[in-house]
Design a protein around this nucleic acid. Structure first.
Lengths: 370, 370
DNA sequence: TAAAACACTGAATCCAAAC
DNA sequence: GGTTTGGATTCAGTGTTTT
């Protein structure tokens, strides 16, 4: 290059930066990241203590980082980090922000005001939300995510076919159903308490990253917490940059991500071409972690095997496609019911993947009651 | 009344007012309606009127120039009608606003800025949304409704038990699933075309009105369209006030509502909560001889006991006070419902004292029949 | 050992009448 | 109008203890 352009500082890929979100983003080169996922404080304005009907006390989010003096102060905070985020985003980049009714309207208006172009609002429906204990309102059973590109003209990433494959062969909708983060996935601190009050489920980030990034992309999370974004990005072969103010969270997140194994690149290939779409819910098993990308499936007769890919398709013996297509190809048959054809291994035994589909159907049946 | 207060103008109940929404609301008496349902437009087509000073084409680099102008105009429109709505709302009244991601964030922020108190955001999940034909985004399968009271201290209406009963006995959630308005319910004009582009399903208004109004309440809809709110309100024994600018819509709505038959009042009764039942003092049980002073009461778990005193208080383990206070003190709990906590012995069995309260309430109910 | 019972928990703007 | 008091109120799930 003939011109004397100062070299841009290298991106601190796959590390967790300390300090304030906006300050840290300002230290990064502009137009350098592909996607931003932001889970900012919600500004809950809780009054007194809340007790369950059995008189146990609800462990509320009363952390100092969620306290703001006024809506005006919250707006100033929002616009500050959002402007910094906008600067580091590539022209064709996009942003996701998650929130509840307490803050999401401020966030959405700020995005529009700063020139972001809204693509969808996505509802995370919780299968197991906390009830409204006093019976004074509706059960607050969802959170809202806003997906926006940097500008109206951005050529943003959207893996349409992968989403369609993960949704029984029909277009992915704007409402996504997942359980809240509990059990073994929920990080604990040394005292055995939940490490972070608002840890998000990995399944949510899995779908989001498969939908709107490609392998090798750079994903920035300015409110990193205990690192769900980093863990899922690493598993999916994406690079991450985390920013987190609290040292304890940084430490836990780093340990967590160190335990994550990246998936084989073949498993990360996203289906791009059109194909005859069977009605497959197989992708949900992967998003929910019931089956791992890269895991091997066996045919019932034991003669064939294939590996699971992150977008809910299979690959093996040179064949790629849905569970039905690959099964049919391997058997040289005109068609094949992948649900009964394929089995996974658990404790030495081969179990039909159809049992997993039945589990999900049972969940949906209870959670989709009006 | 001694003072010379001018009589408030009568409300134009169950009629459709012409003209601009905000102007019409300004002509109504303040603090006079129980609920407002607003389905404001967001396709104001402001962009066509905007020109740069030099008439140059707006190109991709700064193509959000006109976006800012139209957002500003939309905000002004929103704040104008919303302020008028706020004025006519009773202090304990509430408002619902429905919108999509194009406008709902402006609406929600405006509600908060004007002092409304957000109660829930509710997601209308469409079972049959229009697909995204270009495959560039997620299927836009929901709309968002915001439910807010006039102020933080408003004692808003919420028929908790009715909602719970309508949801298989568990609390109603913040996501509601309904099909979009099609078929016979969809109003047609004389040319056989759909009469209104955004007609809402009656099922949606049905649930909303049952949840947050009582029979006889006044429901105002400032963007009346073809009158879904008026039709459902009439069927449910609520009064409505509609405002609609377009004469064609007013005419269709009036015809539609004229065809509606109100439901029988008995059908409109909703499951009452215990809160609505008359209070009974524990002392009444002693006065009536249902329980004797000196008699021992047992906690349901059998771990505690107390003795009844002649004035209707309890004493035990060094604690004295109401049935609630003594129960709470013995359990070390912040509060306690003494009616369900305490039991008395009859023929060797422990019987809840709440059965005695129910006897008294039954007597009161029969004695109040004229 | 299996089944049943019990304890605990999750981003929550969570009461209202009487004095 | 602030304070006191009565008393109404929970779903899905995980993990542990008891039967």
């Amino acid at each position: 290059m003939a011109r004397n352009i100062p070299e841009a500082p290298a991106l601190p890929l796959n590390t967790i930066m300390p300090g304030d979100s906006a300050d840290a983003m300002d230290s990064l080169p502009e137009c350098s990241v592909d996607l931003i996922f932001a889970d900012p404080p919600y500004n809950l304005q809780l009054r007194g203590n809340l007790h369950r009907p059995d008189n146990s006390r609800v462990d509320a989010v009363d952390d100092h980082w969620d306290q703001f003096e006024s809506l005006k102060a919250y707006d100033a905070f929002t616009r500050r980090w959002m402007r910094a985020a906008r600067r580091v985003l590539k022209p064709d980049g996009a942003i996701w922000v998650i929130g509840s009714y307490h803050n999401i309207f401020r966030v959405g208006a700020a995005l529009q005001d700063q020139g972001f172009w809204l693509l969808n609002d996505v509802v995370w429906r919780k299968t197991n939300p906390m009830p409204n204990f006093r019976g004074k309102r509706l059960t607050n059973a969802h959170e809202t995510m806003i997906w926006a590109s940097k500008s109206e003209s951005s050529r943003y990433t959207f893996n349409y076919e992968a989403m369609k494959a993960a949704n029984e062969g029909v277009q992915m909708r704007s409402d996504w159903t997942f359980p809240i983060c509990t059990g073994h996935e929920r990080l604990k601190n040394e005292r055995g308490e939940k490490a972070h009050p608002t840890q998000k489920p990995e399944a949510l980030l899995h779908r989001l990253l498969v939908a709107t990034t490609n392998p090798g992309d750079v994903v920035l999370d300015p409110f990193f917490g205990t690192g769900t974004t980093g863990a899922v990005a690493t598993m999916l072969g994406r690079n991450f940059i985390g920013i987190e103010r609290e040292a304890e969270y940084r430490e836990l997140a780093a340990q967590r991500i160190a335990r994550v194994r990246s998936l084989d690149p073949a498993a990360l290939e996203v289906t791009t071409s059109k194909r005859a779409e069977p009605r497959v819910a197989f992708g949900q098993l992967v998003e929910r972690g019931m089956l791992r990308p890269g895991e091997e499936l066996l045919s019932g007769n034991g003669r064939h095997s294939a590996r699971i890919r992150a977008d809910g398709t299979l690959a093996g013996d040179g064949f790629k496609g849905s569970i039905h297509q690959v099964g049919a190809a391997m058997e040289g048959a005109p068609s094949c019911n992948g649900w009964t054809y394929w089995h996974y291994r658990r404790e030495g035994k081969a179990v039909s993947i159809d049992t997993l589909r039945q589990q999900i159907r049972a969940e949906l049946a209870t959670s989709q009651i009006n």
